[in-house]
Design a protein around this nucleic acid. Structure first.
Lengths: 137, 137
DNA sequence: GGTCTAAATGCAAGTTGTTCGCAATTAAAG
DNA sequence: CTTTAATTGCGAACAACTTGCATTTAGACC
């Protein structure tokens, strides 16, 4: 299990490796935290077309390479979905809007069986409140 | 603890009781399930101004009379937040987009203490997958 | 290497949910 | 009944995201 690189994440998937995909994936890997399309856009110097970023995020999400984390202030946040980053809870600060990853020991598998005939594909657990930084004031 | 009426929900709060607030709250109480601004708008025959609905939803949310449930397809969903409807998990169907309330026996109080200095004001637990109706196909 | 083609990109325009400014209306206090 | 501050309706503005289309490009096949 080597480390994540844009190429390793894309290989064996029948996906064209374009320059912008390498750049986008590189930025996603570098940022160790949840990001939105415009976060990426900014971190890349506002040079890449936003439509390209959106299209690639959708593709990466469909491939399971990234996952949706939360939707806040009308903005969708994602994170890398690799072996080293399994599903985990997130904390959203109601004051500063920052999103924190809440790592936890045991894998998140709350009630995978639901009554009736619900098939659970993803479990989302999030907390909202005030983060340590904002508590200080 | 009487039943919910627009007036009982607003009383003692220094909020003007307007005709549209009564209508909006009435619709919210009648619909026993999560709703969006446009759901309300439609259910009221597209007659009330959407801006009014948005402003009232924001106010009701600030007052704790309703709570945000989830944000799906760029649309914010709310539900009534009264004694009879405590925080509970929701299920979002990836196919039909319907939102189900997952009632549960014990109150939802997962990990209210988090490491560091996080103050948790709300805990959100949601499942996404395929609902019973869509499983049948 | 060169050629070809389907897929990806950039750009501009469009869509959608939500917000804002402002004049007209209205709840409710006096 | 009067008064006034809050609320409403309307239209325009906004922001995130999507789409159409011409241009470019990865990579497969010679």
């Amino acid at each position: 299990m080597g480390k994540c690189t844009p190429e390793s994440l894309l290989e064996g998937r029948n996906i064209k490796i374009t320059r912008q995909r390498q750049i986008v994936l590189g930025a996603i890997i570098d940022t160790g935290k949840p990001f939105s399309a415009s976060d990426l856009h900014e971190s890349l110097g506002n040079e890449m077309d936003l439509a390209t970023i959106y299209r690639n995020l959708e593709m990466l999400c469909g491939e399971g390479i990234i996952r949706q984390v939360m939707n806040e202030k009308e903005r969708q946040y994602y994170e890398l979905a690799c072996i080293h980053n399994p599903e985990h809870p997130h904390f959203y600060c109601n004051i500063c809007g920052k999103i924190y990853c809440m790592k936890q020991d045991k894998p998140m598998r709350l009630k995978k069986r639901l009554p009736g005939d619900f098939t659970v594909e993803q479990t989302v657990l999030q907390y909202r409140g005030i983060c340590p930084d904002c508590s200080k004031e």
